[in-house]
Simulated assay, not measured.
Amino acid sequence: MTAPTNEDWGKMHAKAWKDPEFRTLLEQDPTAAVKAYGEEIGKTFSKIVNVGDKPDNVHDDDLHEHDIAVAPPACC
């Protein structure tokens, strides 16, 4: 499954800063915005959010303290 890379997220944010219509779409319907971006650059994303696996050294009871997650950059 293909998810947007950090580079893709950066380019989407740059596009949102330059294109108010895309920014509105990204804020209101991120799935549609990511799909539109993918079509524009010739990529198909089968995953929009990639949660990843829980680290081996983190116990379920400690998940509320976990702060090493990788996520798309905050935007706008």
Rank of each mutant, 00 (worst) to 15 (best):
K35S: 11
N50T: 11
A16G: 02
I68Y: 05
I41Q: 10
A33F: 02
V51Y: 10
C76T: 09
C75W: 02
D19N: 09
I68F: 08
I48Y: 08
E65D: 15
H13A: 06
Q28R: 12
G42D: 15
I68K: 04
D19T: 02
S46R: 04
G38H: 02
W9R: 03
N6E: 15
H13N: 08
A74D: 14
F22T: 00
M1V: 12
N6M: 14
M1R: 00
V34W: 03
K11Q: 14
D62Y: 12
Y37F: 13
T2W: 00
P55Q: 14
H59M: 11
N6F: 07
E7H: 05
M1E: 06
I41N: 11
D19E: 13
K35N: 08
G42K: 11
N50E: 14
V34P: 02
D62C: 13
R23V: 01
T5R: 04
D61H: 09
D56C: 08
E65M: 14
G52T: 12
T44R: 03
D60K: 09
G10P: 01
M12V: 02
A32W: 07
P4H: 02
L26N: 01
K43Y: 06
V49N: 07
I68D: 11
G10H: 05
M12Y: 01
E40W: 10
G52I: 12
M1T: 11
S46D: 13
A14R: 10
A69R: 03
E7Q: 08
E21W: 04
C75P: 02
R23S: 05
D19R: 00
D61P: 00
P55L: 15
V49L: 10
T44I: 08
A69C: 05
N57P: 02
R23F: 04
T2P: 01
A3E: 07
I41E: 15
E27N: 09
E27V: 05
F22W: 03
F22R: 00
M1H: 01
N57F: 08
E27A: 10
D8W: 01
E39P: 05
A71P: 00
H59A: 12
K18A: 14
L63F: 14
P72T: 10
L63R: 12
D53A: 12
P55C: 12
T5S: 13
